[in-house]
């Protein structure tokens, strides 16, 4: 799958309370959650972000709580992919389980211009191309087991396949 979108840049240790504050957890609706995405650290962000956009972040993105509302809010905002130097483990799991593409890339992307620069992402190869300059970055590809989950469309579909094979 090839994704392309303009980017928004965040720093290190972006926690799940920053991604979606607990006061909004009374809903499970991704669109409603998306209206408050990153609100406490960047109040204008829900208005700026648009479908297909890509989030770029530093290390330990999504640390803190296990709330799946965090990747759901990101998905609900139409964000196509998150690229970070590293992810907190529950956020990583949750993203794969709900089918939000995420990539770990150790290259430094922090200097990119938010809202202007565009990236093209090849998920299978882990290849990231800076559209304006053609510069290439490389992300770690997923292990085969996770590719299987993603290929099926998330953990629910994976479990359905497991249940079917038991019948």
């Amino acid at each position: 799958m090839i994704l392309e979108g303009k980017i928004w840049v965040f720093g290190d240790n972006i926690d799940t309370d920053a991604i979606i504050a607990a006061r909004y957890l009374s809903t499970v609706d991704p669109q409603e959650l998306a209206g408050h995405l990153m609100e406490d650290i960047r109040p204008e962000f829900p208005q700026l972000v648009g479908p297909g956009d890509i989030l770029v972040a530093g290390s330990n993105f999504g640390c803190g709580s296990s709330r799946e509302h965090a990747p759901l809010a990101i998905k609900g905002a139409g964000i196509s992919c998150v690229i970070a130097r590293s992810f907190a483990r529950i956020f990583y799991r949750n993203s794969i389980n709900i089918g939000l593409p995420i990539l770990e890339c150790s290259d430094d992307l922090s200097g990119l211009r938010p809202g202007e620069d565009k990236l093209q992402v090849n998920l299978e190869q882990g290849l990231i191309i800076h559209v304006q300059s053609g510069r290439e970055y490389h992300a770690a590809p997923f292990p085969p087991f996770m590719q299987e989950i993603i290929g099926l469309g998330g953990l629910v579909e994976y479990v359905k396949a497991r249940l079917d094979s038991r019948d």
């Binding site: 296990s66 709330r67 799946e68 990747p71 529950i90 799991r93 949750n94 389980n97 709900i98 087991f145 998330g154 953990l155 629910v156 994976y158 479990v159 497991r162 249940l163």
Partner: peptide
Amino acid sequence: GVGSTDLAAAMAIGEAW
């Protein structure tokens, strides 16, 4: 700790990866 979809899967098949 895991997420909600992991919990859903575990409630169904009693397993986790």
